[in-house]
Computed example of a mutant assay.
Amino acid sequence: MARQPTFHTVSCKEGWRVKEGGEVLSTHLTQKAGWAAAIRASRLTLAQGKRCKAILHRIDGSIREERAYGRALP
């Protein structure tokens, strides 16, 4: 079974980063902009027919919000 992509929006020295699989996809000045980028990446992944998640972290690293895209498999 293939790994499900998970897009994390995390705090960093430069602002907020969107990461997937340990790779930095983008960096943003605000949490709002980073979260919007993670949601865009999730929707593009869903459009390719893949299930995925977007996770927004607080500055302390705890999870603030989580969204799943795509249906659960039976």
Rank of each mutant, 00 (worst) to 15 (best):
V10W: 02
A68E: 13
L73N: 07
L25R: 11
S62P: 01
G15S: 01
I59D: 05
I55D: 02
F7T: 05
A41M: 04
C12Q: 08
E66A: 13
L46K: 15
P5F: 07
G21E: 06
V24E: 10
A41I: 02
L25G: 03
L56N: 08
E66G: 09
C12E: 02
S11E: 04
R67S: 09
D60Q: 02
G49N: 08
I59E: 08
G34H: 04
Q31P: 06
E14P: 01
W16H: 02
T9G: 03
G61H: 07
G70Q: 12
R58E: 13
R3K: 10
E66P: 00
L46R: 13
P5N: 06
G22N: 03
H57F: 08
C12A: 04
M1W: 06
E66M: 13
K32D: 13
I63R: 10
Q48Y: 01
A38V: 04
W16V: 01
A72G: 05
V24I: 15
T6N: 05
Q48P: 00
T27W: 01
H8A: 01
G34Q: 01
P74L: 03
W35N: 12
H28M: 10
K50N: 12
A36W: 02
H8Y: 12
R43M: 06
I63N: 03
E65D: 15
G22C: 04
Q4F: 04
A36E: 15
T27S: 10
G22W: 03
A68Q: 07
K32F: 14
K53L: 15
L56M: 14
H28S: 02
Q4R: 09
R71L: 10
S62E: 11
G15H: 10
V24L: 09
S62G: 06
H57R: 03
W35Q: 13
R71P: 01
R17Q: 15
E23C: 00
A72I: 00
T27M: 05
R51G: 12
T27R: 08
R71Q: 12
T9Q: 09
G34F: 02
S62N: 09
A33G: 05
T45A: 08
S11Y: 10
T27I: 12
L44E: 15
A72T: 05
K19H: 02
S26M: 07
G15Y: 09
K50D: 11
S42L: 02
H28I: 05
G15N: 07
H8S: 02
G15P: 05
P5D: 03
I39H: 05
A68H: 08
E66I: 09
H28N: 14
R40K: 14
A41T: 04
T6D: 03
L46S: 10
R40Y: 14
H57M: 06
T6P: 00
H8L: 12
G49V: 04
L56I: 01
W35E: 08
A38C: 07
G21R: 03
G34P: 04
S11K: 15
Q31L: 11
V10M: 06
T9V: 13
G22K: 01
R3F: 01
R67A: 11
G34V: 01
A54N: 03
C52M: 12
M1D: 11
Q31G: 07
H28V: 13
E14Q: 13
K53N: 15
K53C: 13
